[in-house]
């Protein structure tokens, strides 16, 4: 924990290492400010295939295919993207396919842009209504252990799990 408090530490380092350790091979995402550093790390890692999507629901479907084909993947999305996934998530529920996703929040802690607020405020209830297990985390130091626990729940217990990263961690992100 001490090293985590050093200035240069960023949670994305540990999460990237965790992804390697648990054998993540496919990363699907729509770019997002809060997840940018993690995305840069996984993009640079030749042991994983990162895929940029046009819309987040594509990523849910891709994760289903990855698991069907014997690989593990992770979906990275902003909270707004969660609202595009709800119908596709029903497939994970119906087939009980593992899903690990990292959701970076907008529309909550310190948000400056009103249009982000409605979706931000409905992100967690919508995930829960879609029967996704939600781990909310609002301190950077706790992100790696939360992702590790979520990965176990997803891949070992075959569940759809979302780690929701508070806007408190990422900052208010872009302007839009």
């Amino acid at each position: 924990m001490v090293s985590k408090k050093s200035k240069s530490w960023h949670w994305s380092q540990d999460v990237h290492q965790l992804f390697k350790k648990i054998g993540i091979k496919q990363i699907a995402y729509v770019p997002d400010g809060g997840l940018a550093r993690l995305i840069e790390r996984v993009q640079a890692d030749k042991s994983m295939r990162s895929v940029v999507l046009t819309t987040e629901e594509e990523g849910v479907a891709q994760m289903a295919g990855a698991w069907l084909g014997g690989q593990r993947g992770v979906l990275l999305t902003q909270s707004g993207g969660v609202g595009n996934c709800i119908n596709m998530l029903s497939m994970m529920q119906e087939c009980r396919i593992p899903l690990l996703s990292l959701v970076s929040m907008r529309g909550e802690w310190g948000e400056q842009y009103p249009w982000q607020v409605p979706m931000g405020q409905s992100t967690i209830p919508a995930l829960e209504a879609a029967k996704v297990i939600v781990h909310h985390v609002d301190q950077a130091e706790k992100v790696p252990e939360t992702v590790e626990a979520a990965a176990k729940l997803a891949f070992d217990a075959n569940r759809a799990v979302a780690v929701v990263l508070s806007q408190r961690i990422a900052g208010s992100g872009g302007q839009g």
Binding site: G81, C85, N87, P118
Partner: peptide, 10 residues
């Protein structure tokens, strides 16, 4: 289809 509109409802 309701599951496809959640973000746009924002």
């Amino acid at each position: 289809g309701v599951g496809n509109v959640i973000n746009m409802l924002g």
